[in-house]
C-alpha cells in the first residue's frame, strides 16, 4: 500500500516537473527576447556572428535612426542618403566577422559609413570629407559664418530654434559636420571619431570647436 502511495507521489512530481518544463519552453522566446534586449552591442554582434538574427534586429533597432540621420545630413539628397544607409548595413551584414569587440560598435558602424561616404563622393567627383582636410579651416569658418535663417516668426521658438540648428548643421563644412554628427548621433568620443575618420584626436577636437562656434553663432538670433 505504502509502495503504491510512493509511486503515485513520484508520478505526480514527475508530471509537475514535465509541465513546468513545457511552460518554460513555451515562454522561452519572450524570455530570450528580454534577455537579448539587455545585451550590449558587442554581445549582440557576437550572437549575430553565430547565426542569431534576433541579435541583429536589436542592434539595428538601436542604431538605425542615428545612422540614417547621419547619412541624411551628410548626403545632398535623401535618395543618396538611403543608398548610403543601406550600403553601410549591408557591409555590416557581410563583414560581421571583421568586427572586433574591443571597439564600440557605434564607432565601427560610423567608421564604415565614413569610408562608404568618402568612396561615394570620390566616385561622384565631389569633395570627400578627407579631401577638405587640406583647406584652411579658418577660411572655411569665414565662408560659412553667415548662415541662412528661415525660421518664421510665428512659429514656436523651440521649433524655430531646432530648425535653425538643423539648417546650421547642414551648412557646416563636411569634416566639421561629420565630426559633430558622430558626436551627436553616435555619441562617440574624440578618440572614437578620430579612429572612425582616420584622423588624429587633435584634428577632431579642432573640427568640433569650429563646428560649435558656427552653430552657436547661427543660433544667436534666438537667444
Amino acid at each position: 500500500m505504502s509502495a503504491a502511495i510512493g509511486l503515485t507521489q513520484d508520478w505526480s512530481v514527475a508530471c509537475a516537473e514535465a509541465l513546468a518544463h513545457f511552460q518554460r519552453s513555451l515562454s522561452s522566446p519572450a524570455a530570450s527576447m528580454v534577455e537579448a534586449s539587455q545585451m550590449s552591442d558587442a554581445e549582440c554582434m557576437q550572437r549575430y556572428r553565430q547565426g542569431d538574427a534576433q541579435a541583429f534586429r536589436i542592434l539595428y533597432a538601436r542604431h538605425r535612426e542615428k545612422l540614417h540621420r547621419y547619412a541624411l545630413r551628410l548626403a545632398e539628397r535623401s535618395a543618396e542618403a538611403e543608398e548610403l544607409f543601406q550600403d553601410v548595413w549591408m557591409a555590416v551584414v557581410h563583414g560581421k566577422d571583421r568586427y572586433e569587440p574591443h571597439a564600440p560598435f557605434a564607432a565601427w558602424l560610423f567608421g564604415i559609413a565614413h569610408r562608404r561616404a568618402t568612396d561615394r563622393w570620390r566616385a561622384l567627383g565631389r569633395h570627400a570629407p578627407d579631401a577638405l582636410l587640406k583647406r584652411n579651416e579658418d577660411d572655411a569658418y569665414e565662408q560659412h559664418a553667415a548662415l541662412p535663417m528661415h525660421a518664421p516668426e510665428n512659429r514656436a521658438q523651440n521649433d524655430a530654434l531646432g530648425k535653425a540648428l538643423l539648417d546650421a548643421v547642414k551648412a557646416l563644412p563636411l569634416p566639421q559636420r561629420e565630426a559633430f554628427l558622430m558626436k551627436a548621433e553616435g555619441g562617440l568620443s574624440l578618440e572614437d571619431i578620430a579612429a572612425a575618420t582616420g584622423t588624429s584626436r587633435e584634428t577632431v577636437k579642432s573640427r568640433l570647436r569650429y563646428a560649435q562656434r558656427k552653430l552657436r553663432d547661427a543660433l544667436e538670433p534666438w537667444r
Partner: peptide, 19 residues
C-alpha cells in the same frame, strides 16, 4: 530633440531580410 527622421519601412525590411 530636433532631429526626428527615421528610415522607411521598405529599407528596414530589405536590410533585416538580408541579415
Amino acid at each position: 530633440q530636433s532631429a526626428r527622421e527615421a528610415p522607411t519601412e521598405r529599407i528596414d525590411t530589405r536590410i533585416l531580410r538580408a541579415a
